[in-house]
Write a protein that binds this DNA or RNA. Sequence first.
DNA 1: CGTATTGTTGAGTGAGATCAAAACCAGTGG
DNA 2: CCACTGGTTTTGATCTCACTCAACAATACG
Lengths: 205, 205
Amino acid sequence: MRDGWAIRHKALPDGRRQVVNFVLPGDIIGFYCNLFETADHGVTTLTSVEVASFAPDRIFELFKRFPRLAAALAWSGAKEEAIIAERLLSVGRRTALERTAHLIVELLKRLSLVGLADGGRFILPVTQEILADALGLSIVHINRTLRRLRDIGLIEVAGQQITVNDDKQLSSVGQFDELYLHLIRAPKRLEHALDQAPDRSRAMP
Amino acid sequence: MRDGWAIRHKALPDGRRQVVNFVLPGDIIGFYCNLFETADHGVTTLTSVEVASFAPDRIFELFKRFPRLAAALAWSGAKEEAIIAERLLSVGRRTALERTAHLIVELLKRLSLVGLADGGRFILPVTQEILADALGLSIVHINRTLRRLRDIGLIEVAGQQITVNDDKQLSSVGQFDELYLHLIRAPKRLEHALDQAPDRSRAMP
DNA sequence: CGTATTGTTGAGTGAGATCAAAACCAGTGG
DNA sequence: CCACTGGTTTTGATCTCACTCAACAATACG
């Protein structure tokens, strides 16, 4: 995903839906689905998007010829899993207020990383229905929860623009611990090991 | 994990806990954590376990020299993610009864795959507290929910042994769709592509 | 301007939480 | 052999957070 927003989501036969994760610029999506026979979730764009696609066939070639890239992709996949696991913790054990605060901080951090959040302010191209489906809440309750966050002055909402006024306190409300985002990029050990091992691959494609 | 049960779990500072997934025989665990600087979840054994460990350092060598194995591990990681995403759907959008039914069917299927469930019967070495933490419910409510499942005759419980009497109906209650387990092993395409691409690696270590 | 979609607020309800207390079931140690 | 302990399961009673239903406002759209 080069630019734009999307969501990965799963649904039950009767229409109930769960947003698994938000796909932000810089994220990799649907990579391993090439290894599966069937898709187990859907993807919906929230804005117009710009993607860099990778020919499914070449995924195997990739593992053969570009082990370094393959490792990086595996790393990316592990990060994705960590994010989903944290969301599971949210939905399973955090209250509505905590969940909502946590998600806002998470999005803020992730967007900051790719330069899409400036001074705690970012664009959230998302309806409250989608927020509800991401957090396992009803639309009405998301609405009230956002209002509470506004009332205590932690955030401000103007259309799709969200401003986080006090990210320290918002993080605290959401019991946010950025550990799981694994913001430290590929560890040095990885770089070293890859550089030392005999390698016939060139640069990345 | 060669033999035994374990859980992967995350916790909040105040003690609330979420079980992310159950680690069953045949599962791979903590593999990519070598790629991270910090662990973002804990692992607890539920029984005595037998594991086959892999030297963390060699993970990089593996990507270099055994691309086929690397791809298989990536595939395994993707399956893990799919399971967690399905649990997220459960916790976010299914009722207590549905969740519980779904989990039981999931465990039954996964255990069957490795020959640990016989005729809908398997050992569940797990307290109700752990079930509660896996499903985002209270202990008391898990207890009542299990009782309901017993009362309708869908399952039987004798100590740690669980018997699924009517897996069709239990699947239906849990809206279980085994798609997400990706039971079909590595697709033929993968095999083909790996065999065709130029390869200097031997057999797996 | 109608029509849809989304956001907002009020009122009443309910699924699941919390609190409390028994019952049960290994150990385990006297 | 029995009392005692700590963990787990079970059940009852009460409470509450979040859901549902319903209506209306705001905004966007063709």
